[in-house]
Measured scan of single mutants.
Amino acid sequence: KELVLALYDYQEKSPREVTMKKGDILTLLNSTNKDWWKVEVNGRQGFVPAAYVKKL
């Protein structure tokens, strides 16, 4: 599985998104969309802005 690092805090704005804190390590589930990547964090799956994370 591929991991990404949260570069910034992000507060979810819809049920399809997830909240993350700067420094969190997230599991990358899908990065086919250039703007929104699907990740898993704390057992929850959802989208975060691709610009807010970096592949490890």
Rank of each mutant, 00 (worst) to 15 (best):
I25P: 02
V41M: 10
T32G: 11
A50W: 02
T19V: 03
Q11L: 11
N30H: 09
A51I: 11
Y10E: 00
S31A: 15
D9N: 09
L7D: 02
L29I: 14
T32F: 11
T27Q: 14
G43R: 05
R44M: 07
P49Y: 03
L5H: 05
N30G: 07
R16A: 13
V48G: 00
A6Q: 01
F47A: 03
G43P: 04
N42F: 09
L29Q: 05
R16I: 14
I25K: 05
V53W: 01
T27H: 12
V39I: 08
S14L: 09
V4I: 09
V53R: 00
T32H: 13
G43Q: 07
Y52E: 02
F47G: 02
T32P: 04
W36H: 03
V53N: 00
Q45K: 13
L3K: 12
K34M: 13
N30D: 15
F47T: 03
L56P: 04
E12G: 14
M20D: 00
V48C: 04
I25T: 07
E17Y: 06
L29A: 02
K13E: 09
G46V: 04
V39M: 02
E2Y: 11
S14Q: 09
V48K: 00
F47Y: 12
L56D: 04
V53M: 06
V41L: 14
K55M: 15
L29S: 03
A50I: 03
R44Q: 08
K34V: 12
A6R: 01
Q45G: 07
E40A: 09
L56C: 08
P15H: 13
I25Y: 07
P15N: 14
M20K: 00
Y10V: 01
N33I: 06
E2G: 10
K1M: 15
V4F: 08
E2N: 12
K38E: 14
T19Q: 05
E12H: 10
K34R: 11
E12T: 08
E12K: 15
A50G: 04
N42D: 13
L56R: 03
K38V: 14
V18G: 02
Q11A: 13
R44T: 10
D35Y: 09
L28G: 01
V4K: 01
V18L: 14
K1V: 14
G46W: 03
G23S: 04
V41S: 13
N30W: 09
M20E: 00
G46F: 05
K55N: 09
L28A: 02
I25V: 12
D24C: 05
V4P: 00
L5T: 10
F47V: 07
W36F: 06
L5K: 08
V18M: 10
V39N: 00
A50P: 05
V53F: 05
E17Q: 14
T19L: 03
L26K: 00
R44Y: 06
K22A: 12
Q11K: 15
K55I: 13
D9M: 03
K1T: 13
L7T: 06
D9T: 06
R16N: 15
Q45C: 08
L29Y: 04
Y52N: 06
Q45E: 13
A51T: 11
E12V: 07
V4M: 06
Q45A: 12
E2S: 10
T19G: 10
A6K: 01
K55Q: 10
Y8H: 11
F47M: 13
G43E: 09
L5Y: 15
R16S: 14
Q45P: 08
V18R: 02
N42H: 11
V4G: 12
W37L: 05
K55T: 10
A50N: 03
T19F: 05
K22F: 05
L26V: 09
L5M: 13
E40S: 09
K54F: 13
V4W: 10
L29T: 05
E40I: 07
G43A: 07
P15E: 13
L56H: 07
T19H: 05
L29H: 07
L3N: 06
Q11D: 12
Q11Y: 15
L26T: 01
D9V: 03
A51S: 13
F47I: 08
D35C: 09
W37Y: 09
K13F: 06
K54V: 14
L26G: 11
E2T: 13
D35N: 13
E2W: 15
L56W: 09
Y52H: 08
L26C: 08
R16G: 13
N42K: 11
N33M: 10
L5G: 02
G46H: 02
D35L: 14
S31I: 06
K34H: 11
A50E: 04
K21M: 09
Q45L: 09
K38I: 15
K22R: 13
D24F: 05
P15K: 13
W36Q: 03
V39K: 00
N30E: 15
L3D: 05
K55G: 06
E17P: 05
T27S: 10
Y52R: 06
V48E: 00
L26P: 02
V53C: 08
R16W: 15
T32W: 09
P15A: 12
L28E: 00
A50H: 03
K34P: 14
V41C: 08
K34G: 10
W37P: 01
L28Y: 02
D35P: 03
Y8C: 10
E40K: 06
K54I: 14
A50K: 07
P15M: 10
L3C: 08
K55V: 12
S31Q: 10
L28Q: 01
T27Y: 12
E12N: 08
L7W: 03
K13R: 12
K21S: 11
Y10S: 01
V39G: 00
L5E: 15
D9Q: 04
K22D: 03
L28T: 01
L3Q: 12
A6D: 00
Y52S: 14
D35R: 12
A50M: 06
G23K: 02
D9K: 03
N30S: 14
A50D: 01
K34Q: 10
A50T: 05
V39F: 00
E17N: 06
V53P: 00
P15S: 14
E40H: 06
L56G: 04
G43Y: 06
K55A: 09
K55L: 15
K22I: 07
E40F: 07
E40D: 10
Y10F: 08
Q45D: 09
E40Q: 10
A51F: 10
Q11I: 15
T27C: 08
L7V: 09
V4D: 00
S31V: 07
A51L: 12
V4L: 15
W36V: 03
V48F: 00
K34I: 10
E40P: 00
Q11M: 14
A50R: 08
N33F: 09
T19E: 04
W37I: 05
M20G: 00
K22Y: 05
K13G: 08
R16V: 15
S14N: 14
L28V: 07
L7E: 04
K1N: 13
L3A: 07
A6L: 02
N42M: 10
V39W: 00
S14W: 07
L7R: 05
L7G: 02
T27A: 12
K22V: 08
V41I: 15
D35W: 14
L56T: 08
K21W: 10
V41Q: 12
L7S: 03
V4E: 00
F47L: 11
S31E: 13
L28W: 01
F47Q: 04
E40Y: 07
G43I: 03
S31R: 09
A50L: 02
K1P: 14
G23Y: 04
K22G: 05
N30T: 09
V18K: 02
S31M: 11
Y52F: 13
Q11S: 13
S14T: 11
L29K: 05
Q11N: 12
K54E: 15
F47K: 03
L56Y: 10
M20W: 02
L28F: 04
E40W: 07
N33G: 12
W37K: 02
E2H: 09
E12Q: 14
D24L: 05
K1A: 13
V53H: 00
P49D: 01
N30Q: 11
W36G: 01
N42S: 12
T32M: 10
I25A: 03
V53I: 10
P15Q: 10
Y10K: 01
L28N: 01
A6P: 01
